[in-house]
């Protein structure tokens, strides 16, 4: 009886405490965010008016910078998406018994644990037109200095390169863990049957790590749509608004132009976009399997 009460209390505690914390720090702010998104609050005044769906209508019909930002987010999303097959292949190579694979695993994962701001500063120096390492290397081949961060047509790709370098390692480690969970005897049998490394990759590895691929795809959608620290530190969204992302634009809307209501609506739209795209991706993945 005593044990039962103890168990019961333990369960209640484990449920109640996280629930309280979740309500305080997630549920309440989300409800407040939704509430603000229907107002014209300027962030300074004590008063705010309920304006219905006006903020949402403005986002979709009268905010060219929102679309420009989303287009930039699209670049991050697409480049990272295209990199996924390569990441899986690298993970597959690392999973095979090659000399020093543990060392390469560590090196691959390192960028992920380095602080994003530090990475941004480091790449700012690498990309610099004033003696930056990359342009120095190009100059050896008589290639003129490239304006990696100040050319509006190039800046988003330069920034995507930084995020790719940062997050690739984490994806590879996730894929590696999944590949290692594939039973060795299947691969052994395939090898005996004469399957090449590439055939093993396509026919055995890929179908068996579908769940992890789905997770990485979700992380990609979330990461690409919420990318903030790298463009914020390296370009501040510039030149002009050329490298502004959805999150940067939301912050600018709230804190520079005092539209907290509109910014709240943008944050809500971002949340819905992530859910929607992830759902579509999941459908596509499921459909492929069937």
């Amino acid at each position: 009886m005593k044990d039962y009460a103890e168990k019961r209390l333990l369960i209640i505690l484990f449920l109640v405490i996280p629930s309280i914390l979740l309500s305080l720090f997630v549920v309440y702010p989300t409800i407040r965010l939704l509430q603000l998104s229907f107002t014209n609050w300027n962030g300074l005044s004590n008063n705010m008016d309920f304006i219905g769906l006006k903020n949402y209508i403005k986002i979709f019909t009268d905010s060219p910078k929102v679309w420009l930002s989303l287009k930039n987010n699209g670049i991050y999303f697409t480049v990272h998406l295209l990199a996924i097959p390569l990441e899986i292949f690298i993970a597959f190579l690392l999973s095979s018994k090659i000399r020093g694979s543990r060392f390469f695993e560590t090196v691959t994962f390192l960028p992920y644990i380095v602080n994003g701001v530090a990475i941004s500063y480091m790449f700012s120096m690498l990309y610099s037109t004033q003696g930056g390492t990359i342009n120095q290397i190009l100059s050896v081949f008589n290639i003129p200095a490239v304006k990696w961060l100040s050319d509006p047509n190039l800046v988003n790709f330069s920034l995507t390169g930084v995020t790719l370098w940062r997050f690739c390692g984490m994806h590879i480690i996730l894929f590696l863990a999944a590949i290692k969970s594939v039973p060795g005897d299947i691969l052994e049998a395939a090898e005996i049957d004469g399957a090449s490394l590439f055939q093993q990759y396509i026919r055995i590895i890929l179908p068996n790590i579908r769940l992890v691929v789905e997770i990485v795809l979700f992380l990609n959608v979330r990461g690409a749509l919420q990318v903030f620290d790298v463009p914020f530190v390296m370009t501040g969204g510039g030149p002009g608004h050329a490298s502004s992302t959805f999150t940067l634009h939301t912050i600018e809307t709230a804190f520079t132009f005092n539209h907290f209501g509109l910014a709240s609506a943008m944050a809500t739209v971002l949340m819905l976009l992530i859910i929607m795209i992830s759902y579509v991706q999941q459908l596509l993945m499921g459909g492929k399997e069937q």
Partner: peptide, 20 residues
């Protein structure tokens, strides 16, 4: 007005330099 249209003269300067 400036808040309504996102009027930012300093960003305009960057855009002018970028060839807008």
């Amino acid at each position: 007005i400036a808040n309504a249209i996102g009027f930012d003269v300093k960003r305009m300067g960057q855009e002018m330099l970028a060839g807008e």
